[in-house]
């Protein structure tokens, strides 16, 4: 629901990296977004496209790698992936689970010149 402010945050990171590396244009931005991050990739791309207009990021591609939800069971130590947020361990059927990935919201790579 807050894709626009996230797009603005991405823009800030891009600008910072361009200036640190003395570059003038970004063409691709690689991201990792967890399934639990409450961010809709299509909507984020749309918002970013609008924000990037007339900037050093105009036309840059947002490449989004979706990160699945991974759990670790605190009872039997099983490490597993589920597509949904379900809180039952498939091995021991208990529910003391820790979310170890799926909440990511990261910029991990940029292509720039």
């Amino acid at each position: 629901m807050h894709e626009l402010s996230i797009a603005q945050n991405i823009m800030d990171i891009v600008n910072e990296q361009l200036s640190v590396n003395n570059l003038s244009r970004v063409t691709k931005i690689g991201m990792r977004i967890g399934k639990l991050a409450a961010i809709e990739p299509a909507s984020l791309k749309f918002c970013f496209e609008i924000i990037a207009r007339d900037t050093k990021a105009e036309g840059a591609v947002l490449e989004i790698d979706s990160v699945p939800i991974r759990y670790r069971c605190n009872d039997c130590q099983l490490d597993f992936i589920l597509d949904e947020l379900d809180f039952i361990c498939p091995n021991c059927m208990r529910n003391r689970l820790e979310i170890i990935s799926g909440r990511e919201l990261q910029v991990v790579e940029m292509e720039a010149y």
């Binding site: 996230i6 945050n9 991405i10 990171i13 990296q17 590396n21 570059l23 919201l105 990261q106 910029v107 991990v108 790579e109 940029m110 292509e111 720039a112 010149y113």
Partner: peptide, 13 residues
């Protein structure tokens, strides 16, 4: 050029 970074978007928050 390729720039490898890992920046959490919510890090500032």
């Amino acid at each position: 050029m390729k720039i490898g970074i890992v920046k959490d978007i919510l890090e500032a928050n």
